[in-house]
């Protein structure tokens, strides 16, 4: 049996008088990929923040001892002309050029590319996402947490990012937790699914998350490929 990486039991987060998350329990083992899915406002990001210890909660969150966690945020707060190049951004985390090169290669960005000298704010959604992943890889994490890895990326890019994550998981022996609203695209990559909405919570294998469960979760017919991304 692989080690347990994270055990969450009866996790409850209350904001004001409203419970955003109530008695959530699940367990992730080494090498697994967990997708947390649910409609907007279901508390997916709150769950991440709680297990990262960024907000107060009740219940238990137990990480494997000494584990290194990499976190990839959904977006950065940068203005259009924020003076920070990709290279400088990565160097904020680690100054070793060789490590930066490795991390970039792992996400499919060659070191000599102009991209490194471009401002972070000039990157496309997909490029920025890769750079953010490279940033988190610089800390040699054993677990990666992604908040909507494909937000701001077009449909083709989404598939590419998920397959890249899968390759990384195998190559670097990672455990991955990700937030998403598009189970169908990532179904083949995940080993566990945690679904959240205000009324229900379920935890199980991707094959158990059929159309009925999804309809119940999102409260309507889910059309994965029809919604449009606006930029």
């Amino acid at each position: 049996m692989p080690d347990s990486i994270l055990t969450v039991s009866d996790l409850t987060v209350v904001k004001g008088k409203r419970a955003i998350l109530e008695k959530i329990s699940f367990e992730i083992k080494a090498g697994e990929t967990l997708a947390i899915i649910g409609p907007n406002g279901a508390g997916k990001t709150t769950l991440f923040r709680a297990i990262l210890g960024l907000i107060p909660f009740s219940g238990k969150v137990v990480w494997k001892k000494g584990i290194k966690i990499g976190y990839v945020p959904q977006k950065l707060f940068i203005d259009a002309d924020f003076p920070l190049t990709t290279r400088e951004f990565l160097r904020l985390k680690d100054k070793e050029t060789l490590k930066i090169k490795d991390a970039l290669e792992a996400v499919g960005i060659p070191m000599d590319k102009n991209l490194l000298n471009n401002r972070l704010s000039d990157l496309s959604g997909g490029e920025l996402q890769r750079v953010l992943i490279a940033w988190s890889l610089l800390g040699d994490p054993q677990v990666l947490l992604f908040d909507e890895p494909t937000a701001g990326v077009d449909v083709v890019g989404e598939g590419t990012i998920y397959s890249m994550l899968e390759k990384l998981r195998v190559k670097k022996n990672l455990t991955i937790l990700l937030i998403s609203h598009e189970l169908d695209i990532l179904r083949k990559y995940v080993t566990q699914v945690l679904c959240l909405n205000k009324e229900m919570v379920c935890f199980g294998l991707p094959k158990d998350m059929d159309k009925n469960v999804m309809n119940k979760l999102f409260g309507e017919e889910v059309r994965y490929y029809e919604h449009q991304h606006k930029f």
Partner: peptide, 17 residues
Amino acid sequence: YNKVIISIIAPELAKVS
């Protein structure tokens, strides 16, 4: 400045780091 910049562009990343 390292720390200030990380906390400007990604406050949660700063806390996790």
